[in-house]
């Protein structure tokens, strides 16, 4: 310890306590909802569940996982996440490769850069975007959720910075061996960039899993909703009629515990990938904040 004054010791104790409490507060809501989801209907309706299940039961999860509509939304959510990430990352890697070339080797690079950066700063807004998506045949298909947002300019910037830091010999060797740009990027660059690609993919997956608004405006019925949009209609709009829970069974298990279980299942994929995310995002933010 560098500081030994009594005042600092007092401060230290208070500081540990304060930070400890504050940190726990950041997950308490999640713990609460998890506890509710594992509690009996009686306990949940009596409002006695805090952070530990009362009258432990898996009924709510049984109900949720036995609900075809929920399972369908879950599958569409996964489909959307996988498809969206694959499309977006392919486009990002290809664009980043070209933009990672220096200005004198790739004339026109500057023009492309501004083309993308301007898109970051200005957009047409909700209604015109909605009209364009509707008029290009994507309306009411899963493509409306994965194509319009595929060009992630921020990911392109991070990826091209990564490519720039690869040794120049790598590309020179490939070119001497007669590989074109296409082969260089797909059979060499993507393999040596796997850590960066994995990281950006993880973040893209989180964005897709969490997106709910596009599903609600571009898809016409809740049968086609990915999980986030589906949860939005039940949880926020409280629209239980659409969710396929049998009203009689609902009596037995209380809509509160079922809701809680659905919310928790929606959050689960994020909780699972969180340790991997945490490993990278600190680095990513710091890289991103340094002038590229």
């Amino acid at each position: 310890m560098r500081f030994r004054s009594p005042a600092y010791t007092v401060f230290s104790i208070l500081n540990y306590t304060f930070i400890g409490i504050l940190s726990i507060c950041c997950v308490l809501p999640l713990i609460h909802i998890f506890a509710v989801s594992l509690s009996s209907k009686a306990a949940a309706t009596a409002n006695i569940v805090n952070f530990w299940p009362v009258g432990f039961t898996l009924d709510a999860y049984m109900q949720t996982l036995g609900n075809d509509k929920f399972l369908q939304a879950l599958m569409i959510g996964i489909e959307r996440t996988v498809l969206g990430t694959a499309i977006s990352m392919t486009i990002v890697v290809m664009a980043a490769y070209s933009l990672s070339k220096s200005n004198d080797r790739f004339k026109g690079r500057n023009m492309y850069s501004w083309f993308f950066i301007f898109m970051m700063l200005f957009n047409g807004g909700l209604i015109p975007t909605y009209l364009v998506v509707s008029n290009t045949g994507l309306y009411d298909t899963i493509w409306a959720l994965v194509i319009p947002n595929a060009v992630n300019v921020w990911n392109i910037i991070l990826m091209l910075n990564f490519f720039r830091n690869l040794p120049a010999e790598l590309e020179e060797a490939a070119l001497i061996d007669g590989a074109g740009h296409l082969r260089t990027v797909f059979s060499i660059y993507i393999w040596v960039s796997m850590p960066a690609i994995a990281t950006l993919s993880l973040f893209t997956m989180v964005i897709h899993w969490n997106s709910w608004f596009d599903g609600i405006i571009y898809l016409t019925s809740s049968d086609k909703y990915p999980l986030s949009s589906f949860l939005q209609t039940i949880v926020v709009q409280d629209n239980f009629a659409q969710t396929g829970v049998d009203p009689e069974k609902l009596e037995q298990i209380s809509n509160r515990t079922v809701k809680a279980s659905q919310i928790f299942i929606g959050a689960l994929p994020i909780l699972i990938v969180y340790p991997f995310l945490q490993k990278y995002f600190v680095k990513g933010i710091v890289i991103g904040s340094v002038k590229g």
């Binding site: 392919t90 486009i91 990002v92 290809m94 664009a95 490769y97 070209s98 933009l99 492309y112 083309f115 993308f116 898109m119 200005f122 957009n123 047409g124 807004g125 209604i127 015109p128 975007t129 009209l131 364009v132 998506v133 290009t136 194509i147 319009p148 947002n149 595929a150 060009v151 392109i156 740009h181 296409l182 990027v185």
Partner: peptide, 21 residues
């Protein structure tokens, strides 16, 4: 060519809505 997919999507879903205003 490698930039083409990004440019096409950006033109349609990034820039066309700007004209739509």
């Amino acid at each position: 060519v490698l930039l083409l997919p990004a440019v096409i999507i950006a033109l349609i879903y990034g820039y066309t809505p700007m004209l739509g205003i």
